[in-house]
């Protein structure tokens, strides 16, 4: 098992593609998902692009409503929950897919998490204003992380580079 990330990643795009979408969803589906520049770079250790959470639920990013997300989740759950898996040899794979399904649903069913995710996908064209709560939240998190790392380095090196160099210059 790859310890770098203990979660095994399963490429679940293919089986979902063969699922029939409703006519409305088919018509509105975009041929290619647009990936814009994200505020936070996400390094995919396994290689390849991370699966789109909307694809996991077999939904169109722009037109999916809250009810659509719930219905899609339930429909997928009835297919992939290990309790309803008929073929025992596929139970483990089924479990992995269900875990991914849950992760996708967790994000997309929470309006704030979904907005953040949409921003990462570049689906929102509005410029992020200074007053945007989401942007402020992300910025504060990043700043807190930088402070934490700075404290760790200070503790390890008994001070910053500057504070170590200054006494030498005096000599």
């Amino acid at each position: 098992m790859d310890a770098l990330t203990l979660s095994s990643s399963v490429n679940i795009s293919k089986p979902f593609h063969i699922l029939a979408l409703s006519k409305k969803q088919q018509r509105e589906r975009h041929p290619r998902t647009q990936f814009g520049v994200s505020c936070r770079g996400r390094k995919e250790l396994g290689g390849g692009v991370e699966d789109n959470l909307y694809k996991v639920l077999s939904l169109s990013p722009k037109s999916a409503t809250t009810d659509d997300i719930k219905k899609a989740y339930r429909s997928m759950a009835l297919r992939y929950h290990p309790d309803v898996c008929q073929d025992c040899s596929k139970k483990e794979e089924s479990t992995r897919m269900f875990v991914q399904l849950n992760a996708a649903y967790q994000t997309l069913s929470n309006p704030r998490l979904r907005a953040e995710y949409d921003c990462e996908l570049g689906l929102r064209s509005e410029k992020i204003s200074v007053g945007d709560e989401t942007w402020r939240y992300i910025w504060q998190n990043q700043l807190a992380e930088l402070k934490r790392r700075s404290h760790i380095r200070m503790a390890q090196n008994q001070g910053s580079w500057g504070s170590r160099i200054r006494p030498q210059n005096i000599n």
């Binding site: 310890a3 990330t5 203990l6 979660s7 929950h81 139970k91 760790i152 390890q156």
Partner: peptide
């Protein structure tokens, strides 16, 4: 040095 190794703890609950 402390703080450098990354110890990944994963918990898995099956059905």
């Amino acid at each position: 040095p402390k703080g450098v190794p990354e110890i990944n703890v994963c918990m898995d609950i099956d059905a």
